[in-house]
Write a protein that binds this DNA or RNA. Sequence first.
RNA 1: CGGGGCGUAGUGUAACGGCUAACAUGCUCGGUUUGGGACCGAGUGACUCCGGGUUCGAAUCCCGGCGCCCCGACCA
Length: 423
Amino acid sequence: MKQSQLFTKTRKEAPKDEVSKNAQLLIKAGFVDKEMAGVYSFLPLGLLVLKKIENIIREEMNRAGGQEVLMTVLQDKATWEKTGRWSDDVVDNWFKTKLKSGAELGLGFTHEEVIAKIMKNFVSSYKDLPFYAYQIQTKFRNEQRAKSGLMRCREFLMKDLYSFSKNKEEHEEFYEKMKDVYMKVFDRLGMGEKTYLTISSGGSFSKYSYEFQTLSEAGEDEVYIVDEEKKIAINKDDFNDEILADFSLNLKESELKKVKSIEVGDIYSLGHRFSEAFNLTYKNKEGKEEFVYMGSYGMSPTRLMGAVVELNSDENGIIWPENIAPFTVHLIVLNSKNETANENIIKTAEKIYKDFQEKEIDVFYDDREKSSFGEKLKDADLIGIPIRILITEKTLKEDSVEVKKRNESESKMVKVADVGSVV
RNA sequence: CGGGGCGUAGUGUAACGGCUAACAUGCUCGGUUUGGGACCGAGUGACUCCGGGUUCGAAUCCCGGCGCCCCGACCA
């Protein structure tokens, strides 16, 4: 894409109503726009990143056997009353609204009830199990306090996968597998090194569950690191003698390192809670009815985008990991006042731009005529595309372009003819 | 939901209860520049969050709302 055609612009000043690094940088660079607290629009650059994150998640969910669906946002009160979760005393972050008729509806904050109800239509025999369904969809949670930019929103994208198994053993096999699948996603997002499988209390569904916590000062959570090598931690809130005994851990709180972290995923064993509420059963080999054993697995692409920015930036801007950068290459021309030289600069840039496009390399071409080069270079640093290729009168005198990686300080000259080799 | 801070051109800031609400940046036009948001000049842009009150006079003081940020609580 040509930068001259992008409707967003960068800003010099960070917005005064944002303190978090992720929101400041993403707004300054034009990736997102804030509609209100905890509610953000994704602009062209931001959407490119979000789609890449989604696709990584989608690929890994598909590989794990997930089947993608898209469930509804508007949800029937009756469905939720089956589990008692319609009540505001049980769930305090509902957004609720009404039909013209006066009937009450909720805006989905999760989908266990909805999917359990759907599956009644399709599950009847042990031969139907196990299977896994997931979606990537907008969730609404009426947070009492939205904060930290993209990391705690009232409207956000969530990947939620639900597993349907015959019994606990079959469930646990998949549950274990999902730990690796999740870590694979975090690896591909460039945050695997800092992400810990974290033991936590399981809420109302089971005694324990696992969270994935990425170490960062920007996080809301705190974890005790149990094993740095294996990347295991315990959520600070859940650290007690019981949990240590149950996991056969011999640890002293005073000897553990406590680190702030961002919760980037969670996986739950749901057991029969929802299958009982919806009478979701199957016939086993003996012809006896049994309840389906469920699990749920959450991960938010929008929060991940915020987390990636928290982890990857410097004083000049964002440093996108290659896998999810909006573009792979930022091709920048610095125009010359010498007409012949300028023609050559533009001709060379256009050719490289076209070649990259033909090779399906994502290239962002800064073809803007600016009165100062500094502005173009500052923009490039702020936007944070991994590889910067500069074409100027000077570089072309050597028949070359200058190549610099965003995460390195040194640049190198590369012959125009060899420019394809830098990607 | 408790506590604290704040609300002024697109953005960031300023303005004692008193001149036409100022400065920077952005944007437009003209010119000079050309490897880190360069320079000069001329323009453009504000119902000072909303509603009420006090006052001769309110961006400024008071009351009530709404919104934003931070700390805490909360976070199936």
